[in-house]
Design a binder for these strands. Structure first.
Length: 145
DNA sequence: TTTCTAACA
DNA sequence: TGTTAGTA
């Protein structure tokens, strides 16, 4: 009764040119080129030197984070450094949730996230629920079909 | 139309 | 960083 999130979203296929990335993030194309020159960000490897830059989804995230930090008052070098640590935290979070998430189950009309076994003996399962912006948890026996 | 580099403001 | 020039 559980399912996996369909792996139909391939983020590697989300690619943007400089004008698009600029409009998406509010960072000027001039800034994007400058940041690349300073090695703060990088575009997908270009064959020719004079061809249009192509940015991937992860660069979009990086630029978005840097932009937010700049708006908060960080100066560019500091913003880049902090973005780097935020990026690592995000990566860890993604890996954690990917490993923890075991599908969705509906009980009595309520939707629960199966977050895997709660104990090493595998007799209990941790369920998470999201409601009104709040996360809550329940531990229930594993064989509660 | 968009992007590129280079250069000046 | 913004802008502009002259291209591809």
């Amino acid at each position: 009764m559980k399912y996996q999130i369909p792996n139909i979203v391939d983020f590697d296929k989300f690619v943007f040119r400089i004008g698009e990335l600029s409009r998406m993030t509010g960072v000027s194309s001039r800034q994007l080129r400058y940041w690349e020159q300073r090695d703060y960000i990088s575009a997908i490897t270009r064959d020719d030197q004079n061809k249009a830059r192509v940015y991937d989804f992860y660069t979009f995230l990086q630029v978005s984070i840097i932009k937010k930090l700049l708006d908060e008052g960080y100066r560019l070098p500091a913003a880049v450094e902090k973005m780097s640590s935020i990026e690592k935290e995000l990566s860890l979070s993604r890996k954690f949730f990917h490993a923890a998430f075991n599908g969705v189950e509906v009980v009595d009309g309520q939707v629960f996230l199966n977050l895997g076994y709660f104990d090493k003996a595998k007799t209990q399962i941790l369920y998470g629920q999201y409601e009104n912006g709040q996360a809550s948890y329940e531990v229930r026996p594993a064989n509660d079909d």
